[in-house]
Simulated assay, not measured.
Amino acid sequence: MEWLLEPFAVGFVQRAFVAGVLVSIVCAVAGTWVVLRGMAFLGDAMSHGLLPGVALAALAGVDLVVGAVASAMVMAAGVSALGRSRQLSQDTAIGLLFVGMLAAGVIVVSSSASFAVDLTGFLFGDVLAVGTRELWQLAAAVVATLLLGAAGHRAFVALAFDPRKAHTLGLQPGLAHGLLLVLLTLAIVASFRVVGTLLVFALLIAPPAAAVLWARRIPGVMAGAALLGIVANGAGLLVSWHAGTAAGATVAATAVGLFFLSCLAAALRSRRRPAPTVAGSAEIVENHTS
């Protein structure tokens, strides 16, 4: 048992674990809607789109979170504006913004040789360097995420089920979509310092995608995703400690591994029972609205 408990007796690993728990909760709430609405590409684009704001914030000597928020707001506003165009599909708009923001960030980074270490931290995070200030920021993000998720839950369900029905019910699907973008932005900005923008996508998508295979109602997906994220966090930190691997990347890889294990278990369960027992995204939403 000593090999299991030894890492978590160290202060910085304890803080990393607490940070991972908070990130798992935030990503579980936002990621559930990302998975149910098929917005994975948007989540990936949003996480990469933070680069120019973070780079400019580093050059100006201000908090990186300020730059991340500014970039995320530009990205979200651009997606909303271009998404209303009848000439462009949403995927095209997201792809163009994705490439444009990433290119702008790389241009800013390439203008200064001092960005080498900072860029590595931005891309891959440094969960073992999380301090008390970051923990308080994550705790505030959890509270904001839960409040926003609860306030918009009915509209989000209707939007995921049928945008036309949401409009008929007076739930303003356009506003609901905007709130979902805010929720996604909050999750990405809150998490990028812990696991980095390239790896936050794993925690945002993998745990909810794994939970969707088993839960039949939206709160169940969120709870299962949070639990899987916490397990991935603890197991990833444990493996990282003993194997000497990068902590953030190990946590993300563990989350993805749990998803594939969940897929395998669901497939084996389906073979034993001829009747379908695994809920899909549409079925989950229908069960929740019934």
Score class of each variant (00 low, 15 high):
210 A>M: 02
40 A>V: 15
58 A>C: 00
48 H>T: 06
249 A>R: 09
55 A>V: 05
12 F>G: 01
20 G>Q: 03
146 L>Q: 04
196 G>Q: 05
66 V>D: 01
61 G>E: 01
158 A>N: 10
15 R>S: 11
258 L>I: 11
214 W>P: 00
217 R>K: 15
37 R>V: 11
51 L>K: 04
115 F>A: 01
102 L>F: 15
128 L>E: 04
238 L>I: 03
78 G>S: 03
173 P>R: 01
230 I>V: 15
173 P>F: 05
204 L>E: 05
256 V>M: 09
267 A>K: 11
124 F>T: 10
132 T>G: 13
37 R>Q: 14
31 G>V: 10
107 I>A: 12
146 L>W: 11
263 C>M: 14
16 A>K: 04
83 G>Q: 02
47 S>P: 02
144 A>T: 06
178 G>Q: 03
83 G>M: 02
125 G>C: 04
121 G>A: 02
100 G>C: 03
3 W>T: 14
244 G>W: 12
155 A>E: 14
2 E>S: 15
28 A>W: 07
39 M>R: 15
89 S>P: 08
96 L>P: 13
279 A>T: 09
268 L>Y: 07
145 T>P: 00
205 I>N: 03
125 G>E: 03
112 S>D: 15
112 S>F: 09
254 T>W: 03
222 M>G: 10
152 G>N: 10
133 R>E: 14
104 A>V: 09
108 V>D: 03
180 L>P: 05
2 E>A: 14
128 L>F: 12
182 V>L: 14
160 A>C: 09
208 P>A: 04
116 A>H: 11
113 A>G: 09
262 S>Q: 08
166 A>I: 11
10 V>R: 13
185 T>R: 05
119 L>I: 13
239 V>Y: 09
33 W>N: 03
96 L>C: 12
149 G>H: 04
124 F>Q: 09
45 A>K: 02
127 V>Y: 06
95 G>T: 06
25 I>P: 00
267 A>P: 02
285 V>Y: 06
118 D>N: 10
239 V>W: 08
212 V>F: 13
136 W>L: 15
205 I>C: 05
173 P>D: 01
190 A>Q: 07
124 F>E: 08
156 F>P: 00
249 A>H: 06
94 I>L: 04
48 H>L: 10
29 V>L: 15
140 A>R: 09
183 L>I: 12
4 L>Y: 05
12 F>Y: 08
92 T>P: 09
100 G>F: 02
45 A>T: 02
